[in-house]
Simulated scan of single mutants.
Amino acid sequence: MITQAEYELLCSDAVRRAVAVNRGRDPLEVALDRSVPHARIVATQVKYLARATVKLPAYAAAQCILPPRAFEQASSEACAAHKMLEGDTVLDLTCGLGVDAWYLSRRFRRVVTLERDPVVAAVARENFARLGAGNIEVVTAPAEEYLRRPGLEFDWIYADPDRRSAEGRKQLRLEASSPDLCALMPLLQRASERLCIKCSPLFDVDEALRLFPASRVEAVSLGDECKEVVIYADGAGPLLTATALGRGSYSAPPDTPAPPLPARFDAGHYRWLVQPDVALQKTRLARRHLWGQADSWSENGYGFAREEPREAIGRIFAVSKIEPYDPRRLRRELSGAGVELLKRDFPIDTPTLMRRLGVRAGNEQRIAFTRIGNEYWTIRLHG
Rank of each mutant, 00 (worst) to 15 (best):
V119G: 14
V119P: 12
V119A: 15
V120Q: 14
V120K: 09
V120L: 15
A121E: 13
A124I: 14
A124E: 11
E126T: 15
N127L: 11
F128G: 15
A129L: 05
A129C: 06
L131S: 14
L131N: 15
L131Y: 04
L131G: 14
A133W: 00
A133E: 12
A133I: 04
A133S: 12
G134K: 00
N135D: 08
N135P: 07
N135V: 02
N135I: 02
I136F: 11
I136M: 10
E137R: 08
E137W: 01
E137K: 06
E137Y: 00
V138R: 04
V138Y: 03
V139T: 09
T140W: 00
P142E: 13
P142G: 13
A143T: 06
E144H: 04
E144D: 14
E145W: 03
E145P: 01
Y146G: 10
Y146C: 10
L147M: 04
R149L: 12
R149C: 08
P150W: 01
P150C: 03
G151P: 03
L152A: 04
E153R: 14
E153W: 08
E153C: 13
E153N: 11
E153A: 15
F154C: 05
F154H: 08
D155W: 00
D155P: 01
D155R: 07
D155A: 10
W156M: 00
P161N: 13
P161H: 11
P161R: 11
R163P: 13
R164Y: 11
R164C: 12
S165M: 08
S165F: 00
A166S: 14
E167I: 06
G168L: 09
G168E: 06
R169H: 05
K170Q: 12
Q171C: 10
L172E: 11
L172V: 11
R173A: 07
R173Y: 03
E175Q: 09
S177Y: 05
S177G: 09
S177E: 14
S178W: 02
P179A: 04
D180R: 03
L181Q: 05
L181R: 07
L181S: 03
L181G: 00
L181W: 08
C182T: 14
